[in-house]
């Protein structure tokens, strides 16, 4: 797998830290809206073991309009600063807009994380032109920044998700994105209710079996909240449990708020899977 300038082993499990330059995202509620605060968070997550930062300038839920100019203004400067300060770090930008993609790639972004499933069909061309990686998500074709409302699928949900992400991956390939730079993502909760998201999660191995690397974005989402009946500030345990299961089923990239905790879970699962030696084994062995 290659994410822009960075190449990773086939069994690497990567932590992608969420960095929001938004005043209103559901979890951090504007804590890193100021560019300096966002930069501080980048420094922190690097220290905690993040492989990737995912910089976003527009919250996913409905809310105040953020036009292209405003989104560019929020993210491009930060991308350039991170590129300068942390050359070893993969820089991803969470955007669905080709114009924004163009600007951030020029500033050093390695990955375009299209959380809205190809709403702007020109985004793949931008990724191809800059040799950037692209995250191909499934949203069922919904408008960006809308909530699911009575969304139903009259066909197997995993078949629907696979059609969406594989179709997107093929479009990216056809546009010229490198094969090793295409990642698929079922997009937990996007265009899906909690039942849908749970079904996709428990069958994540079917996505892994396609051969494309799988990204999961689980962190503190509503499906965790609705499953455990917990408000947004009490969803870490549910998130980590889902992270462990997803890792066991073969997901490769974890888009998260809590980096250190996720890293530990992934290390533990990697060891359980036999892909990582224990850190220190002396008990009964001395």
């Amino acid at each position: 797998m290659r994410l822009g300038r960075h190449t990773f082993a086939d069994d690497a499990m990567l932590v992608m830290a969420i960095v929001n330059r938004t005043p209103d995202s559901f979890y951090d509620k504007g804590a890193t809206f100021a560019e300096d605060k966002a930069m501080e968070r980048v420094d922190l997550v690097v220290e905690q073991g993040a492989d990737i930062v995912d910089i976003g300038g527009v919250k996913a839920a409905p809310g105040g309009e953020v036009d292209v100019a405003e989104e560019v203004d929020r993210v491009v400067g930060l991308v350039a600063r991170v590129h300068e300060a942390h050359p070893q770090l993969v820089i991803s930008v969470d955007t669905w807009r080709a114009e924004v993609g163009e600007a951030v790639c020029a500033a050093g972004a390695d990955v375009l994380n299209d959380a809205w499933g190809g709403a702007d069909p020109a985004l793949v061309d931008v990724a191809a032109r800059h040799d950037a990686a692209i995250i191909c998500t499934h949203t069922g074709g919904v408008e960006p920044r809308t909530r699911p409302f009575r969304t139903g699928f009259d066909r197997d949900i995993m078949a629907e998700v696979l059609d969406g992400v594989l179709g997107y991956a093929e479009r990216a390939l056809a546009a010229g994105v490198a094969r090793e730079s295409i990642v698929i993502d079922p997009a937990h909760d996007f265009g899906k209710n909690t039942h849908h998201t749970l079904e996709v999660t428990r069958r994540l191995d079917e996505m892994v079996d396609t051969g494309w690397p799988v990204l999961v974005s689980l962190s503190n989402k509503d499906f965790v909240g609705e499953t455990l009946d917990k408000p947004v500030d009490q969803r870490l345990i549910g998130t980590l449990a889902t992270t462990a299961v997803s890792a066991w089923l073969g997901a490769r990239i974890y888009r998260v708020h809590e980096v250190a905790e996720t890293r530990q879970v992934l290390d533990m699962v990697a060891t359980l899977r036999g892909e990582r030696p224990p850190a220190r084994t002396i008990r009964g062995l001395a």
């Binding site: 699928f153 009259d154 039942h195 849908h196």
Partner: peptide, 18 residues
Amino acid sequence: SGAARFTTGRVPDGALPT
């Protein structure tokens, strides 16, 4: 029933609209 459209998506043929 077409209720599976809100869970697994495995909805039988001829299922009722919700």
